[in-house]
Design a protein around this nucleic acid. Structure first.
Lengths: 279, 279
DNA sequence: CACGGAATGGAATGTTTATTCTGTTCTCTT
DNA sequence: AAGAGAACAGAATAAACATTCCATTCCGTG
């Protein structure tokens, strides 16, 4: 029996539970913890079965529900069920639905779907692969650079190419290395203390990218790099490096996740610069 | 009562239903259709409530379950519940979990998550926005071209830049327009019957891209284009065009979905060429 | 320390639920 | 067209269920 109105969705309920967790009696707190840890059990189980799992009496479950304004356990259970109902389906399921609908009659359509799926899973990999602390470290390095040298060839080139465009818009000085064949090394010769470099290379690693990154790092200039394997030669000469394995479709890799990463890095650097300046 | 063993996951059950759909009695077929169309209802509803929705008797549901080897309706229902239980959570929920875990202490981490989320939703938009038939049409046009001219400037440039790399690897002749400032129009002057062009431009549209695409199309060369609005001037002069609105994070857009699209288009063109050749 | 109120455990209760059973209808076969 | 067999609707039933109630325990307060 509460003063406020009853929660209508899972998020509201969660908030309500978290808010009042401290003032909840022992057994009810026990139920609260169990409910948030095992929402699926609440959704599908019976009051009796849940009671056993949570080591309380069924009546406690009813009381718990009533404490949060519900009529009884059943109406509380509806919230947990709605949560599962409304939860967006995962990629694989969505893809299956797509495949069944169109039967992938057109091969080109199947290819498109394949690349979309690959991009989704690359992004997922990105989520779990990138350590926020290291990311922040990389951002700090680049944000403090007078000029950022962007080193990439071949398949990786579009990434730095886009970053160069974005940095330009953000009024951050950068130098795109990798455009014309000859002048790269001349450009890098200007790199100095207070600068930094960002290098990208995927297997098979372009020899030039490696040698250039190495040369820069030997001059004491910090290098941040993005690559697709821990064994990458780039990792050795980098102050901070990131491993990002782009998923492939039929042997071809797109750059979707790399692009998201690059853009995040770019904007984060700009953001941090702002902070540094205003201090 | 069947000869085989009972299905123990949703996919197996679905397969079994689809396989025997033709030989199912009327009411059971009705249940089968309802079950596959409204799996959530089966998971959460009671036999009585489902019976009303599906317009059958509760006993029919039991018989249906038994037909597929289950002991009764309840054990069939378990399959539908397990499906929801095991279903991977959607992005928003995953993101929420991320946000709660790290509390987004680091601003840079929040930016990364933001771009990943934006990329995911762009990809979703891509899924539903692209008509497979039109996509196939575009593929056909480009696959039949002797040389493919890739027209893009500024933010769109990395896309064609990557396509040029991939086309090169695939031994498909293409010409990247947009590298050096002066020679673009000279390059396009070589474009002839039997060629085709692919143009990309996002708002604010680069004037050169538009004028070049227009010039090419006036020569009777088919143009396929990718843009972000139906009002784009590119749409007017294109044989086939695609609208792809990339989701933004904090005002900045990455190219994740565009990259997936570009790669799919590239590979699909290569695939179709192979087919044409072998014929 | 004793009292009062809240919280709890556990059994009783009345409802809901899946299931079974039986008479009827439909459908294919001969 | 007539009969046999399966399929079906609907009521009957028994099990499972959430809920309620009350006696007991716990805990803070005077």
């Amino acid at each position: 029996m509460s003063d406020e109105q009853v929660p209508h969705d899972f998020e509201a309920l969660k908030a309500a539970i978290l808010q009042r967790k401290a003032v909840l009696p022992k057994r009810l707190k026990q139920v609260a913890a169990y409910a948030l840890d095992n929402p699926d059990e609440i959704a599908f189980g019976t009051a009796a079965s849940i009671a056993v799992s949570a080591d309380v009496q069924p009546s406690t479950l009813v009381r718990f529900a009533q404490h949060f304004g519900f009529e009884g356990f059943s109406s509380l259970q509806q919230i947990f069920r709605a949560r599962l109902r409304e939860r967006a389906p995962g990629y694989d399921e969505r893809l299956r639905a797509l495949a069944e609908k169109g039967h992938d009659q057109l091969e080109s359509g199947a290819i498109l779907n394949g690349f979309i799926a690959a991009a989704h899973s690359s992004l997922d990999a990105l989520t779990s692969a990138i350590d926020p602390v290291r990311f922040d470290k990389a951002v700090t390095i680049l944000a403090n650079a007078a000029t950022i040298y962007l080193i990439a060839k071949r398949r990786a080139y579009p990434i730095t190419s886009y970053m160069a465009y974005a940095f330009g818009k953000l009024k951050i000085r950068c130098q795109l290395v990798g455009t014309a064949a000859g002048i790269d090394d001349d450009m890098l010769a200007f790199a100095d203390d207070g600068d930094a470099a960002f290098a990208v290379s995927f297997s098979p690693y372009a020899a030039e990218t490696i040698s250039q990154a190495l040369a820069v790092s030997c001059k004491g200039i910090p290098v941040v790099s993005l690559t697709d394997s821990v064994f990458s030669p780039l990792a050795e000469c980098s102050a901070v490096w990131f491993e990002l394995a782009e998923a492939d479709h039929a042997g071809f890799r797109s750059l979707s996740a790399s692009m998201a990463f690059a853009m995040a890095l770019t904007v984060a650097v700009a953001e941090k610069r702002q902070q540094i300046k205003t201090k």
